[in-house]
Protein backbone atom coordinates (compact mmCIF):
# COMPACT_ATOMS: atom_id res chain seq x y z
CA UNK A 1 0.00 0.00 0.00
CA UNK A 2 2.83 2.42 0.85
CA UNK A 3 4.40 1.70 -2.51
CA UNK A 4 1.11 2.43 -4.26
CA UNK A 5 0.74 5.71 -2.37
CA UNK A 6 4.27 6.75 -3.21
CA UNK A 7 3.73 5.83 -6.85
CA UNK A 8 0.49 7.78 -7.17
CA UNK A 9 2.02 10.74 -5.39
CA UNK A 10 5.06 10.80 -7.68
CA UNK A 11 2.89 10.45 -10.76
CA UNK A 12 0.52 13.24 -9.84
CA UNK A 13 3.36 15.58 -8.90
CA UNK A 14 5.17 14.84 -12.15
CA UNK A 15 2.02 15.48 -14.16
CA UNK A 16 1.45 18.72 -12.32
CA UNK A 17 4.99 19.86 -12.88
CA UNK A 18 4.71 19.15 -16.58
CA UNK A 19 1.77 21.52 -16.78
CA UNK A 20 2.81 24.39 -14.56
CA UNK A 21 0.16 26.61 -16.12
CA UNK A 22 -2.57 24.78 -14.22
CA UNK A 23 -0.82 25.44 -10.93
CA UNK A 24 -0.02 29.00 -11.83
CA UNK A 25 -3.60 29.72 -12.91
CA UNK A 26 -5.04 28.76 -9.54
CA UNK A 27 -2.43 30.82 -7.75
CA UNK A 28 -3.04 33.79 -10.01
CA UNK A 29 -6.77 33.46 -9.37
CA UNK A 30 -6.10 33.64 -5.64
CA UNK A 31 -4.10 36.83 -6.06
CA UNK A 32 -6.58 38.45 -8.43
CA UNK A 33 -9.62 37.73 -6.27
CA UNK A 34 -7.87 39.09 -3.20
CA UNK A 35 -6.92 42.19 -5.17
CA UNK A 36 -10.50 42.79 -6.29
CA UNK A 37 -11.89 43.39 -2.82
CA UNK A 38 -10.19 46.73 -2.17
CA UNK A 39 -11.42 47.88 -5.59
CA UNK A 40 -14.94 47.04 -4.54
CA UNK A 41 -14.84 48.02 -0.89
CA UNK A 42 -12.59 51.05 -0.96
CA UNK A 43 -8.97 51.44 0.08
CA UNK A 44 -9.55 52.71 3.60
CA UNK A 45 -6.64 51.11 5.50
CA UNK A 46 -8.49 50.33 8.72
CA UNK A 47 -11.30 48.66 6.84
CA UNK A 48 -8.89 46.62 4.75
CA UNK A 49 -6.97 45.54 7.80
CA UNK A 50 -10.22 44.40 9.38
CA UNK A 51 -11.42 42.38 6.39
CA UNK A 52 -8.01 41.00 5.39
CA UNK A 53 -8.20 37.58 7.11
CA UNK A 54 -11.67 36.93 5.72
CA UNK A 55 -10.78 38.06 2.22
CA UNK A 56 -7.62 35.97 2.10
CA UNK A 57 -9.49 32.93 3.37
CA UNK A 58 -12.40 33.32 0.92
CA UNK A 59 -9.94 33.76 -1.93
CA UNK A 60 -8.14 30.61 -0.80
CA UNK A 61 -11.46 28.76 -0.73
CA UNK A 62 -12.37 29.80 -4.25
CA UNK A 63 -8.92 29.10 -5.64
CA UNK A 64 -8.88 25.67 -4.05
CA UNK A 65 -12.20 24.86 -5.65
CA UNK A 66 -11.03 26.01 -9.05
CA UNK A 67 -8.23 23.46 -9.09
CA UNK A 68 -10.36 20.63 -7.70
CA UNK A 69 -12.33 20.04 -10.87
CA UNK A 70 -9.18 18.71 -12.49
CA UNK A 71 -8.40 16.30 -9.68
CA UNK A 72 -10.01 13.22 -11.15
CA UNK A 73 -11.13 14.42 -14.56
CA UNK A 74 -7.86 13.86 -16.37
CA UNK A 75 -7.40 10.34 -15.01
CA UNK A 76 -11.02 9.57 -15.74
CA UNK A 77 -10.61 10.67 -19.35
CA UNK A 78 -7.60 8.52 -20.16
CA UNK A 79 -8.73 5.44 -18.25
CA UNK A 80 -6.18 5.58 -15.44
CA UNK A 81 -8.95 5.99 -12.90
CA UNK A 82 -10.51 2.68 -13.86
CA UNK A 83 -7.15 1.02 -13.43
CA UNK A 84 -6.90 2.48 -9.95
CA UNK A 85 -10.37 1.16 -9.15
CA UNK A 86 -9.47 -2.31 -10.35
CA UNK A 87 -6.03 -2.30 -8.84
CA UNK A 88 -4.85 -4.03 -5.71
CA UNK A 89 -4.15 -0.91 -3.68
CA UNK A 90 -7.03 0.24 -1.47
CA UNK A 91 -8.89 2.99 -3.29
CA UNK A 92 -9.00 5.11 -0.16
CA UNK A 93 -5.23 5.19 0.04
CA UNK A 94 -4.93 6.06 -3.64
CA UNK A 95 -7.47 8.83 -3.17
CA UNK A 96 -5.61 10.18 -0.16
CA UNK A 97 -2.39 10.22 -2.17
CA UNK A 98 -4.05 12.16 -4.99
CA UNK A 99 -5.49 14.65 -2.51
CA UNK A 100 -2.10 15.10 -0.88
CA UNK A 101 -0.51 15.73 -4.28
CA UNK A 102 -3.25 18.20 -5.09
CA UNK A 103 -2.65 20.03 -1.84
CA UNK A 104 1.10 20.22 -2.41
CA UNK A 105 0.49 21.81 -5.78
CA UNK A 106 -2.63 23.92 -5.12
CA UNK A 107 -2.81 24.51 -1.37
CA UNK A 108 0.75 24.92 -0.20
CA UNK A 109 1.53 27.72 -2.69
CA UNK A 110 -1.38 29.65 -1.22
CA UNK A 111 0.22 29.41 2.21
CA UNK A 112 3.43 30.79 0.71
CA UNK A 113 1.78 33.66 -1.18
CA UNK A 114 -0.65 34.67 1.57
CA UNK A 115 1.86 36.93 3.40
CA UNK A 116 2.23 38.96 0.19
CA UNK A 117 -1.52 39.51 0.07
CA UNK A 118 -1.46 40.31 3.77
CA UNK A 119 1.12 42.96 2.98
CA UNK A 120 -1.29 44.46 0.44
CA UNK A 121 -3.87 44.72 3.19
CA UNK A 122 -1.41 46.19 5.68
CA UNK A 123 -1.94 43.33 8.09
CA UNK A 124 0.35 43.70 11.11
CA UNK A 125 3.38 41.45 10.67
CA UNK A 126 2.93 39.49 13.94
CA UNK A 127 -0.31 38.09 12.46
CA UNK A 128 1.44 36.55 9.47
CA UNK A 129 2.38 33.49 11.48
CA UNK A 130 -1.18 32.81 12.58
CA UNK A 131 -2.42 33.39 9.05
CA UNK A 132 0.08 31.00 7.55
CA UNK A 133 -0.57 28.37 10.19
CA UNK A 134 -4.33 28.61 9.77
CA UNK A 135 -3.96 28.18 6.00
CA UNK A 136 -1.48 25.36 6.48
CA UNK A 137 -3.98 23.48 8.63
CA UNK A 138 -7.07 24.49 6.68
CA UNK A 139 -6.12 24.06 3.01
CA UNK A 140 -5.65 20.27 3.31
CA UNK A 141 -9.16 20.07 4.78
CA UNK A 142 -10.42 22.02 1.78
CA UNK A 143 -8.65 19.56 -0.50
CA UNK A 144 -10.10 16.54 1.29
CA UNK A 145 -13.68 17.81 1.39
CA UNK A 146 -13.44 19.20 -2.12
CA UNK A 147 -12.19 15.88 -3.43
CA UNK A 148 -15.44 14.25 -2.29
CA UNK A 149 -17.32 16.79 -4.38
CA UNK A 150 -14.97 16.32 -7.32
CA UNK A 151 -15.51 12.56 -7.21
CA UNK A 152 -19.29 12.95 -7.03
CA UNK A 153 -19.47 15.37 -9.95
CA UNK A 154 -17.05 13.44 -12.16
CA UNK A 155 -17.92 13.85 -15.81
CA UNK A 156 -21.11 15.80 -15.22
CA UNK A 157 -22.07 18.76 -17.37
CA UNK A 158 -21.91 22.01 -15.46
CA UNK A 159 -19.41 20.21 -13.27
CA UNK A 160 -17.35 23.10 -11.96
CA UNK A 161 -20.22 25.24 -10.78
CA UNK A 162 -22.10 22.25 -9.41
CA UNK A 163 -18.98 21.29 -7.50
CA UNK A 164 -18.90 24.76 -5.98
CA UNK A 165 -22.54 24.56 -4.92
CA UNK A 166 -21.99 21.19 -3.27
CA UNK A 167 -18.74 21.95 -1.55
CA UNK A 168 -18.95 25.58 -0.40
CA UNK A 169 -21.50 24.92 2.40
CA UNK A 170 -19.21 22.20 3.71
CA UNK A 171 -16.30 24.64 3.65
CA UNK A 172 -18.01 27.03 6.04
CA UNK A 173 -16.55 25.68 9.33
CA UNK A 174 -13.02 25.77 7.91
CA UNK A 175 -13.54 29.35 6.77
CA UNK A 176 -14.98 30.40 10.12
CA UNK A 177 -12.21 28.90 12.20
CA UNK A 178 -9.47 29.86 9.77
CA UNK A 179 -10.38 33.51 9.45
CA UNK A 180 -11.51 33.53 13.07
CA UNK A 181 -8.10 32.48 14.31
CA UNK A 182 -6.47 35.48 12.66
CA UNK A 183 -9.22 37.76 13.94
CA UNK A 184 -8.62 36.52 17.46
CA UNK A 185 -4.91 37.15 17.11
CA UNK A 186 -5.64 40.61 15.72
CA UNK A 187 -7.74 41.36 18.80
CA UNK A 188 -4.83 40.38 21.01
CA UNK A 189 -6.44 37.13 22.14
CA UNK A 190 -5.09 33.64 21.79
CA UNK A 191 -5.82 31.96 18.47
CA UNK A 192 -4.97 28.57 19.92
CA UNK A 193 -8.56 27.40 20.25
CA UNK A 194 -9.41 28.01 16.60
CA UNK A 195 -6.13 26.52 15.41
CA UNK A 196 -6.76 23.42 17.48
CA UNK A 197 -10.24 23.13 15.99
CA UNK A 198 -8.70 23.43 12.54
CA UNK A 199 -6.25 20.69 13.44
CA UNK A 200 -9.15 18.56 14.64
CA UNK A 201 -10.98 19.13 11.35
CA UNK A 202 -7.81 18.11 9.54
CA UNK A 203 -7.45 14.89 11.48
CA UNK A 204 -11.12 13.97 11.06
CA UNK A 205 -11.21 14.76 7.35
CA UNK A 206 -7.93 12.92 6.73
CA UNK A 207 -9.39 9.90 8.52
CA UNK A 208 -12.85 9.79 6.93
CA UNK A 209 -12.70 11.65 3.64
CA UNK A 210 -10.65 8.98 1.78
CA UNK A 211 -13.41 6.49 2.45
CA UNK A 212 -16.06 8.89 1.15
CA UNK A 213 -13.92 9.79 -1.88
CA UNK A 214 -13.46 6.11 -2.73
CA UNK A 215 -17.19 5.47 -2.38
CA UNK A 216 -17.95 8.47 -4.56
CA UNK A 217 -15.47 7.35 -7.22
CA UNK A 218 -17.10 3.93 -7.35
CA UNK A 219 -20.56 5.50 -7.60
CA UNK A 220 -19.44 7.81 -10.39
CA UNK A 221 -17.71 5.26 -12.55
CA UNK A 222 -20.00 2.25 -12.40
Amino acid sequence: MIAAIRCVLRRDLLLALRRPSDVATALLFFIIVASLFPLGVGAEPNQLRAIAPGVIWVSALLSSMLSLARLFAVDHADGTLEQMLLGAAPLGAVAAAKVFAHWLVAGLPLVAIAPVIALQYDMPVPLYGTLALSLLLGTPVLSFIGAIGAALTLGLRGGGVLLALLVLPLYVPVLIFGAGSVDMAAAGLSALGQLQLLAALLVVSAAFAPWAIAAALRISTE
Binding site: P169, L170, P173, I176, F177, G180, L201, A215, S220
Partner: peptide, 25 residues
Protein backbone atom coordinates in the same frame (compact mmCIF):
# COMPACT_ATOMS: atom_id res chain seq x y z
CA UNK B 1 -29.60 7.96 -6.25
CA UNK B 2 -26.29 6.82 -4.87
CA UNK B 3 -24.38 10.07 -5.44
CA UNK B 4 -27.16 12.06 -3.79
CA UNK B 5 -27.20 9.60 -0.92
CA UNK B 6 -23.49 10.00 -0.28
CA UNK B 7 -23.82 13.77 -0.44
CA UNK B 8 -26.74 13.69 2.02
CA UNK B 9 -24.77 11.57 4.46
CA UNK B 10 -21.71 13.83 4.22
CA UNK B 11 -24.07 16.78 4.70
CA UNK B 12 -25.84 15.42 7.77
CA UNK B 13 -22.52 14.65 9.42
CA UNK B 14 -21.38 18.20 8.74
CA UNK B 15 -24.54 19.97 9.94
CA UNK B 16 -23.63 19.87 13.66
CA UNK B 17 -20.11 21.06 12.84
CA UNK B 18 -21.47 23.86 10.68
CA UNK B 19 -23.98 24.86 13.35
CA UNK B 20 -21.36 24.91 16.07
CA UNK B 21 -18.91 26.92 13.99
CA UNK B 22 -21.58 29.44 12.98
CA UNK B 23 -22.66 29.80 16.60
CA UNK B 24 -19.08 30.49 17.67
CA UNK B 25 -18.69 32.97 14.81
Amino acid sequence: DRAGALLAIVGVVNVPIIYYSVQWW
